[in-house]
């Protein structure tokens, strides 16, 4: 490849890389890395294809492929953004529902309850006390005073 043609191809490839970097920025790492790697592989295959274009045709071809796909790149990005936004909304709704449930559960635990009376002690056949089961709560005066 002649020097100017090589420079033009390098420039076109750099433009593709720059654009790919731009429209994939802010995406999850796995998605971003996969798209960039796939474009990188395509560029390499194109430049090293013995049946492919050569000379300045090569760089023009790369730039045309870039420009004709810009709308689809943007649509792809918008779809991913919408999917991410939906995932965030669903996640937020589930988290809110979980928090409401936990709050309700904690409040329910903290609520004052009227506990049931314990059952009567089992009878063991003891004769009734002299007070006949009653407690004498009368206040008796001390005669020594």
């Amino acid at each position: 490849m002649r020097q100017p043609d090589a420079r033009a191809t390098a420039f076109a490839a750099a433009a593709v890389r720059l654009w790919t970097r731009l429209y994939t920025s802010g995406l999850p790492v796995a998605v971003r890395t996969a798209r960039r790697a796939e474009i990188e592989s395509d560029l390499w295959e194109f430049v090293h294809d013995p049946d492919g274009d050569d000379g300045w045709h090569r760089s023009v071809h790369i730039l045309l492929r870039l420009m004709r796909g810009v709308a689809d790149d943007l649509r792809w990005r918008l779809t991913l953004d919408r999917m991410t936004a939906t995932a965030v909304r669903v996640g937020a709704a589930l988290t809110a529902a979980l928090l409401v449930f936990i709050a309700w559960w904690v409040l329910d635990l903290m609520r004052t309850r009227v506990l049931p009376l314990p059952p009567d002690p089992p009878s063991v056949g003891v004769s009734p006390t002299p007070l006949d089961g009653r407690i004498d709560l009368a206040v008796h005066e001390d005669p020594s005073r």
Binding site: I39, R68, G69, V70, A71
Partner: peptide, 9 residues
């Protein structure tokens, strides 16, 4: 060749 964006989408 099919444009990058169109092909990979």
């Amino acid at each position: 060749l099919t444009a990058y964006g169109t092909l990979y989408r």
